[in-house]
Design a protein around this nucleic acid. Structure first.
Length: 455
RNA sequence: GAGGACGUAGCUCAGCUGGUUAGAGCAUCAGAUUGUGGUUCUGAGGGUCGUGGGUUCGAGCCCCAUUUUCCUCCCCA
């Protein structure tokens, strides 16, 4: 017996029952994407390491799974190199490939590489796994699927609106209550500008992003540790106190950025426009302005959005935003894109927790033929071909096992009907059909069975 | 990268202040029932108690190390 078999930390096997559930999510997501006119692409699991590094920040680079070069990966590396170089520098020399960390950067690479074949605006979706060398915990895996929808080559805010419609449609179909949180990078820039700490924007934003989690005191503490001036901190906290005590956060926030920051007001206007369009779209989900929302600062330039499930504690299940110059890094400047990514694994976790999956989703086979021996098997085989021709999913038990065993199999597989054809039935050219739910048995011709199951 | 908890049968777990042969439920297999599952009854198989060392007359239990999984921070889907 083989012992101690296992899979790498943070990865998972999926049983048939789990796969049915996952496919249900992927199918729902994909159907909505297609409905809105997006087309699929796929990119390789691995990219050149240089394509990925530097796109996700220092922290992100550390989380990229690198692939050791084939052959002698130590070629050209001396002992001095090993002693003197940083591990990241060494890794870059020994690994020229890496597993993709997300789908957005490979997409940007794809757009640049295929720019002459692409008609802009380009609306694409991509449903593939990504890998992160993160420490696994609740809702966090080292291999997980992202379902990305992006439109690239259009500045219109209509795209943002469309993505919100897509998010709403997907989660409505899945039966999940969600809140869409909306912010704009320009508003964050505006805030930093107004308090006179523009160059510390990243520190400021990552701190206020934790507002909900660590509270006001925690944020102040973190800002102090980042050497933000007390004066600026007081101003900043003042804004947020003011905002959150207000009935209408969004209107209130306007007064803050309005007078002293051009970028800020630009961001505010963008969100106002989006809210304006949305009133015509019959959106069911709650969409709210959240000035503390930060996310992926490394490339977002405009809208930032995030989706949280209302009824369960879980990190964000969908997120995205606008990036004005993502392809610029690959030599194609001034192409604006906006997109969101659905975290299929987390959505699956949330739906499991809320028991939102349809109960009978794993029923596939409608009818099982029992096996009674050679001649009877052939009798069933003929019927089987005919019944499959009629589009009814059915199977024949492969062994002439005890009937108890064959019926147990049907039961375990949740197969709703079992047909038995023994010598009696063969003489009468029929089958004994058993309804596994009621236990009722009745002799029926093949045509009658087909008619019954076709409904 | 920092911190915390856990690991006993295929699964979920019990196992007293350290004391004889480590238990239960579920699952599996067989029988009760030779053409009928799901309910019921009877029985069986299945364990180097995560791994390595130590303390002890004696360790599933105590100590040390190591590893796994889960959780928190960081960051994110």
């Amino acid at each position: 017996m083989a012992v101690n078999v296992s899979i790498p930390k943070g990865t998972r096997d999926f049983s048939p029952a789990e796969m049915i559930r996952r496919k249900y999510i992927f199918q729902t997501v994909e159907d909505v994407f297609r409905l809105y006119g997006y087309l699929p692409i796929e990119t390789p699991a691995m990219e050149n390491l240089s394509t990925l590094t530097g796109k996700y920040g220092e922290e992100g680079d550390r989380l990229i799974f690198k692939i050791l070069n084939s052959g002698n990966y130590l070629e050209g590396i001396s002992n001095e190199d090993i002693q003197n170089s940083s591990t990241t520098k060494l890794a870059a020399r020994m690994c020229e490939k890496a597993l993709r960390y997300d789908l957005t950067v490979p997409f940007a690479r794809y757009v640049v590489q295929n720019r002459n074949e692409i008609t802009f605006p380009f609306k694409r979706y991509q449903i593939q796994p990504v890998w992160r060398a993160d420490r696994p915990q609740k809702g966090r895996y080292r291999e997980f699927y992202q379902c990305d929808v992006d439109v690239i080559g259009s500045n219109s805010l209509l795209n943002e609106v469309e993505l919100i419609q897509i998010i709403d449609a997907v989660f409505q179909q899945l039966g999940l209550n969600i809140t869409i949180k909306l912010n704009n990078r320009k508003i964050l820039s505006g805030i930093a500008e107004v308090i006179g700490e523009s160059n510390k924007i990243v520190d400021i934003v990552t701190a206020i992003d934790k507002f909900e989690k660590i509270g006001k005191e925690g944020v102040i503490k973190e800002l102090i540790s980042k050497e933000i001036s007390i004066d600026a901190i007081n101003k900043l906290i003042g804004f947020f106190d003011n905002t959150f005590s207000s009935e209408n956060k969004f209107d209130n926030f306007k007064s803050i950025v309005q007078f002293s920051s051009e970028v800020g007001i630009l961001g505010w206007n963008e969100i106002a426009t989006i809210f304006g369009y949305l009133t015509n779209c019959n959106i069911k989900a709650k969409v709210e302005f959240d000035p503390t929302l930060a996310r992926g600062l490394n490339y977002y330039t405009g809208a930032i959005l995030e989706v949280k499930a209302n009824d369960v504690a879980m990190g964000s299940i969908c997120g995205g935003g606008r990036y004005d110059d993502l392809t610029g890094i690959f030599g194609l400047p001034d192409v604006s894109g906006v997109g969101v990514s659905f975290g299929a694994d987390r959505i699956c976790d949330v739906m499991n927790e809320l028991k939102l999956f349809p109960e009978n989703a794993e029923i596939s086979t409608q009818l099982l033929f029992t096996n009674h021996g050679e001649a009877e098997m052939i009798y069933a085989l003929k019927a089987l071909a005919e019944i499959r021709q009629a589009g009814i999913s059915s199977e024949l038990y492969p062994d002439n096992a005890k009937l108890k065993k064959q019926f147990s199999y049907a039961d375990a597989r949740k197969i709703p009907y079992v047909a038995s054809g023994g010598s009696t039935e063969m003489q009468e050219n029929c089958f004994t059909l058993k309804n596994m739910q009621t236990g009722a048995m009745e002799k029926k011709s093949l045509q009658e069975i087909i008619a019954l199951l076709k409904k």
